[in-house]
Write a protein that binds this DNA or RNA. Sequence first.
DNA 1: TTGAAAGTTTAGCATAGGCTAAGTTATATG
DNA 2: CATATAACTTAGCCTATGCTAAACTTTCAA
Lengths: 146, 146
Amino acid sequence: MALATKKIPSAKLRSAAFKRVRADHSAELAGDYVEMIADLIDERGEARCTDIAMRLGVANATVVKTLKRLQTAELITQEPYRAIFLTVEGWKMAEDGRRKHAIVEKFLLALGVSQETARIDSEGIEHHVSTETLRAMGKFLARNGG
Amino acid sequence: MALATKKIPSAKLRSAAFKRVRADHSAELAGDYVEMIADLIDERGEARCTDIAMRLGVANATVVKTLKRLQTAELITQEPYRAIFLTVEGWKMAEDGRRKHAIVEKFLLALGVSQETARIDSEGIEHHVSTETLRAMGKFLARNGG
DNA sequence: TTGAAAGTTTAGCATAGGCTAAGTTATATG
DNA sequence: CATATAACTTAGCCTATGCTAAACTTTCAA
Ligand SMILES: [Mn+2]
Ligand SMILES: [Mn+2]
Ligand SMILES: [Mn+2]
Ligand SMILES: [Mn+2]
């Protein structure tokens, strides 16, 4: 009995990590989209479907479908055949994403990997970095001329 | 021209990062499963559906369905109502995953985050770390008493 | 030895996130 | 200003990954 009751919390503790990963992945696509939309607006004044599809490397129809979900989530607004806008909430998420992404990418560079690798790896890693880890990366950057 | 291509990555170059992330995610579940099956076999002699479901925090039926894909991929073998075995390929993938996972987790610890955070964050990060980044983490560990 | 508990599988459903092909709208240009 | 091209949307398909409920098999203990 002692063995059995001990087994349950340990399993629950383990499963927490996988639950976090699944939650991270749920939020990931939305995060990448709003970040990219923010970039497009800043870079060229407006964000269009086609640009997003190009940069993500997916089909146009895929972007359209995803944008509908983002609209439902009130992260963007959009009229048919028009450019895409971020809501206040969308901008907030974009800024948070950019900040986190930048720290992760700079951190990888400071760790000694190439520009190219830092850019690529950070695109996935950024979504799994907790506040605590992000702070540790920030401290490392401060110590190593980030 | 040379300046433009150097400063701003082309759309194709950008999309490569997202394609990598999508590829990482495709491989992720299989990686976590075989690693967990290997752990269960080592810890308790055999791997059963229920244990995997518990540790992942998903329903039993979800595990059954995923195991079928792993069987198709020739990573595991399985008879109805029996324990799960890894193929040679499955063991190889499990060992590679363990090695990578251990380096990422130890690296996070060495960076100064708590045991708990290292355990949780590494579960997601491990799948997005390239060989080059893994090597950089290994070097950091060597320098910092990993 | 047999019946209940535990474990496993099947069936059926849902959502996310991909795709192609075809249709619709906006815009640029001759 | 008319229309060709580019951009966008819709429709319909697919796979992966999750769920619950119900059926089936194995195991264990009375
Ligand atoms: Mn990303
Ligand atoms: Mn792992
Ligand atoms: Mn993992
Ligand atoms: Mn991920």
